[in-house]
Design a protein around this nucleic acid. Structure first.
Lengths: 192, 192
DNA sequence: GCTTATAAACTAATATCGTTAGTTTTATAA
DNA sequence: TTATAAAACTAACGATATTAGTTTATAAGC
């Protein structure tokens, strides 16, 4: 009980990610993807639940890849060093995989349980790094992790959309802002 | 030399913004919008250059509205107070007009001159507030404004997409993060 | 007040999507 | 060798944006 083994989910998702990174997420359609795979678009329904299903799979793949990258970046590091490492890894991922990164965004208000779980794991990782770097009340950690994520996501998005027009080095901005934020944390939450 | 005066650009844009805020930007189509306006979709081409032209007009309208809101918020305030005011105004705008705010994003790498100009004015306003609040090198101001904008945009986006799941107050997060950031700026750039 | 020019709104038609239904094909299990 | 089941296919439909060409209503000129 097994038929033609032409396509499988992994092949489809990889090609979709490649297409998203090359031409933008909005250019990933069942039509363009099926053509790229040498197949007719209805054939994709054997592997994926329509376009929305494809986007969910892509989101999941992106979140797992991002989580994996942050995990590797944080390994063996601690304190400011670890925070910087995951921050740069985050921006790096968004730069290397702009389309795939974009696909990860609407992950949260999905119904897909695995998507929600993977999304939560990403947060947990960041919380752990921050909690180990700075000992403070759990609630404060959550506030500050929200700030960290917001900065990372906002920077990645604005950078990609060309929002930073001025001729000032972008990597330096990341350094300065993160350093400033961490200085604020140290002064405000660990001075007494 | 003047024909039927049923529609005009302003009516179209306002309705499009209303639709975007109510049902999401992706639900703004020439079909849905024309139906909402009691007109056939090709009629819109008399006022707007297709769907992409409509989106550009919407983006421009959103940027102007946002700029206006920040300007009012900053009027009569200075220092930390002014920075907090525009920060809260920014988040407030994104909360009140989620669809319109979303439309403002791809403003930068557009070719539309007025769109670029309006986008630059928004930056200039934030730079002015920050520069008056903290006296420092111009280049540092730009780094820190990038951080401020990134945080605002990231927070607004993640909040809307349901990215902050944990049961911790969101407004408090804004307060804590901004305070921490401003503390860092003061210590790092104005201590000596 | 009548005519006319002009811009707005229309109808008709096309191409491209996503999607569904039903058919054909082929690799594997029996 | 045969039967089964999953994959890939064709055909068709509805919705979309868009273009071309037609009709219509308003305002300007006489």
């Amino acid at each position: 009980m097994s038929p033609r083994i032409g396509l499988d989910l992994q092949t489809i998702i990889r090609k979709a990610a490649e297409l998203a990174d090359k031409s933008g997420l909005e250019s990933v359609t069942l039509a363009s993807l099926s053509q790229e795979l040498g197949v007719r678009s209805p054939s994709l329904y054997n592997h994926v639940d329509g376009l929305s299903g494809l986007k969910e799979e892509l989101s999941l793949y992106g979140l797992k890849s991002l989580h994996d990258k942050l995990l590797r970046a944080a390994a063996g590091r601690s304190g400011d060093d670890a925070v910087f490492a995951i921050g740069l890894a985050y921006i790096g991922f968004a730069r290397e995989h702009p389309g795939l990164y974009e696909a990860t965004l609407p992950a949260q208000h999905s119904e897909n349980a695995e998507l929600i779980r993977t999304s939560e794991e990403l947060i947990k990782l960041i919380i752990q790094v921050m909690q180990l770097a700075f000992e403070m009340k759990q609630e404060d950690t959550i506030h500050l992790v929200r700030g960290f994520r917001s900065f990372m996501h906002g920077f990645a998005t604005l950078e990609r959309s060309g929002g930073f027009g001025l001729p000032v080095n972008l990597d330096e901005s990341i350094q300065v802002v993160l350093q400033t934020y961490l200085t604020g944390i140290r002064v405000k939450f660990q001075s007494q």
